[in-house]
Design a protein around this nucleic acid. Structure first.
Length: 645
RNA sequence: GCUAAUGUAGCUCAGUUGGCUAGAGCAGCUGAUUUGUAAUCAGCCGGUCGGGGGUUCAAGUCCCUCUAUUAGCACCA
């Protein structure tokens, strides 16, 4: 008999060699039903796994991270079998679970949408037939022989690279045997609802020198509702697509004459300016100064900073009178020139120097994507120059600043600390100090964070803010990067208490990341229904007929003179028509319909986007309402996606 | 940059196996209508079918090429 310990610390005895699923069944059939895999002594295993000695056990259902991973990984195998059934000549490469779903790479002709539908159908057959996943452990030689005989070159390549002594396991599902570490679900029938999403090219092993394979992405869920919710979010994301809304709301345009470079229209520029206005307000509160440095700077500067060597292919250059110039891709070298233009006492530090800099980067054509990835953008940069002793407090200050700004947009976020990458400069000691500085700040601030081992910049560790939008999608926005490179290269110093010259500590930080990208994110986050302080048009005044135009115009004039962004729709159209346009299409936060009743009583029925009529207010009350809403930057109601369940 | 798909009016889209003068809705303009909370009616305007080259008696349609866009990959020190 062996002793098995459960998560609640209870212990029960079982026959030696009992399988994990039998343990689950012994507890309850419902547990056995929802269980996908188990962890035995912390290692995730198949439910068929035999337990031979005392162990701790945890069962994983789809709701856990481990459960999802196994579920999706198995789904990818089912997809591979389906593809092999339909297209026997394809070769399989790899097929893992990912954060949301799974994919499998094949050497094959590109798959069209119809192919995906066919593969889905084949998958449901496989699922319905209830095939078993069978695990086998085989020797390296056997494995190579087997996959070679099947012509699965990619698998052979993978096996040959496995370290000596590694257990080589395969999982078979019907005729399809795949090299796989596992674990897997026990039976294909556990996969309930599958949808194949997209297919496109992907390089073998992610290397652009290698052959391009065909990748199919898919998702699966045990419950139909979950699949529907997933697809609904995708649909909603499509509706909120910032390129589409940008056109509909007259925010910006792109032209082939300047790929990747947005042209802001009147309405978009309002949002752009308001974002910066708010940024300035918050930074001023925190003791930042603001500077502005030139866009075009000589090549020598970039050689000194190291960009010429390391970032060359992303930089635009220009030649003027025989000298080479760089259109700046970043603001830091210019900012450092300014810092270095005077001597700094320790008493001056920290210096928090902000710059909304217009940067250009030669992003590869295939990388461009609306406002999310552009060639011309405004970085909301700031550099903080300080003494080593100030690191912790400064970092905490930045985190607090970012936190309060994201809150204003209703954006959730989590933090990630990225540590030293393989390719990096600086001594171990310097990295240690720098990383501990960031870690110390995070701990002192008292917020949870994830560690991204080895994901730091080559010049220093960083803290990244991953923000979560209204559709629960994640975006990289804010970043705080400690730089151990540029201060050396530019000899950035301050004078300490003993009149000694000391190396200053420098951090780069950006809150929005880039104004362009952030604007794209909030367009989708709000779905075009902006908070009043950001909305390009805040109020539309709608006279019922031109009999009321004069009075309505006076209301418009009043709001306009107070500085609100108001439109006056005096076209000879029906009220319904104007409402449809102002509310449904332009998503104007407030509408005032003005007819006989308003003229007589001076009381307005105020209509709000998404929320319909919100009550009757005098003009004065309406004005004080919107004043509060603008001044305190209240979030709109109803921009978040609501589910029926 | 790579793979694939796409590009027809300002927008969304039709346009057979190549075959008359390229269509529709919305938007815009003009007029009528004077309207009470998500589309009033009529008329008009609007296109070198992304650019260039080719095949053909004939090209929006087929081929080549360039370009832009989209998705993914790679990239994002």
């Amino acid at each position: 008999m062996i002793k098995i310990t459960f998560p609640d610390k209870s212990v029960r005895e079982f026959e030696q060699g009992i399988k994990a699923y039998q343990v689950a069944t012994s507890i309850s059939t419902s547990l056995a039903k929802t269980t996908i895999a188990a962890s035995v002594n912390g290692k995730v295993v198949d439910l068929d796994h035999q337990i031979n000695s005392d162990a701790g056990i945890i069962f994983h259902s789809f709701s856990s991270k481990e459960g999802k991973e196994v579920y999706w990984h198995s789904s990818s195998h089912i997809m591979a079998l389906a593809v092999k059934n339909l297209y026997p000549n394809v070769k399989v490469a790899i097929g893992p679970a990912i954060e949301q779903g799974f994919y499998y790479d094949f050497e094959a002709e590109p798959f069209a949408d119809e192919d995906l539908r066919k593969i889905e159908k084949e998958m449901s057959k496989i699922i319905k037939s209830g095939m078993k996943f069978e695990r086998n452990e085989i020797s390296r030689e056997e494995a190579i022989k087997m996959f070679e005989s099947k012509g699965e070159d990619y698998k052979v390549e993978l096996i040959k690279e496995l370290p000596e002594g590694e257990v080589i396991s395969t999982y078979s599902l019907g005729d399809f045997t795949d090299l796989c570490r596992g674990p897997h679900i026990s039976n294909s029938s556990k996969i309930k609802h599958v949808s194949l999403l997209t297919s496109s090219g992907a390089y073998w092993r992610g290397d652009s020198n290698n052959k391009m394979l065909q990748r199919i992405y898919g998702i699966s869920f045990p419950d139909k509702d979950e699949l529907e919710k997933f697809l609904m979010i995708r649909e909603e994301a499509e509706k909120r697509n910032h390129k589409k809304l940008g056109r509909e709301l007259n925010l910006f345009s792109f032209f082939p004459e300047a790929p990747g470079s947005p042209f802001y229209k009147k309405n978009g520029l309002i949002i752009f300016e308001k974002l910066i206005e708010y940024w300035r307000e918050e930074h001023k509160k925190d003791g930042y100064e603001e500077i502005k440095t030139p866009v075009i700077l000589k090549r020598e500067l970039w050689e000194r900073s190291g960009h010429w060597e390391n970032y060359r292919e992303n930089m635009f250059t220009s030649e003027i009178e025989g000298d080479q110039f760089v259109i700046k891709p970043m603001n830091c070298p210019g900012g450092i020139l300014l810092y270095n233009s005077e001597l700094h006492s320790y008493k001056d530090l920290p210096i928090r120097s902000g710059e909304i800099g217009l940067d250009h980067r030669n992003e590869f054509s295939g990388a461009l994507s609306g406002l999310f990835r552009v060639r011309a953008f405004h970085m909301d940069d700031a550099h903080i120059f300080m003494t080593p002793a100030q690191i912790k407090d400064e970092i905490i200050g930045v985190i607090k600043l970012f936190a309060r700004v994201y809150k204003t947009f209703g954006l959730e976020y989590h933090l990630e600390l990225s540590t030293r990458p393989e390719k990096s400069i600086g001594t171990d000691e310097a990295w240690e100090t720098a990383t501990e500085g960031l870690r110390g700040a995070l701990d002192a601030y008292g917020i949870g964070y994830e560690i991204n081992e080895g994901d730091g910049a080559f010049y220093g560790p960083k803290i990244d803010f991953k923000i979560h939008d209204a559709l629960s999608r994640q975006w990289q926005c804010g970043t705080i990067q400690l730089d151990m490179n540029l201060p050396e290269r530019f000899d950035v110093t301050y004078i300490d208490e003993n009149s000694d010259k000391k190396r200053a500590i420098m951090i780069h930080r950006a809150l929005y990341g880039s104004i362009e990208r952030f604007m794209g994110i909030i367009i989708e986050h709000f779905g075009g229904f902006f908070p009043l302080w950001l909305a390009p048009v805040q109020v539309t005044v709608i006279p019922v007929s031109d009999k009321f135009n004069d009075y309505a115009k006076s209301v418009y004039d009043k709001l306009n003179s107070l500085g609100y962004r108001v439109e006056f729709d005096d076209r000879s159209e029906k009220v319904g028509y104007k409402i449809r346009e102002a509310d449904g299409i332009k998503k104007t936060p407030y509408m005032l319909v003005i007819g006989e009743k308003e003229v007589e009583t001076n009381i307005f029925t105020v209509r709000q986007h998404k929320n319909g009529n919100i009550g009757e207010l005098s003009l004065e009350d309406f004005i004080s309402r919107i004043k509060v809403e603008v001044d305190t930057r209240i979030l709109p109601e109803g921009y978040k996606l609501e589910f029926n369940k």
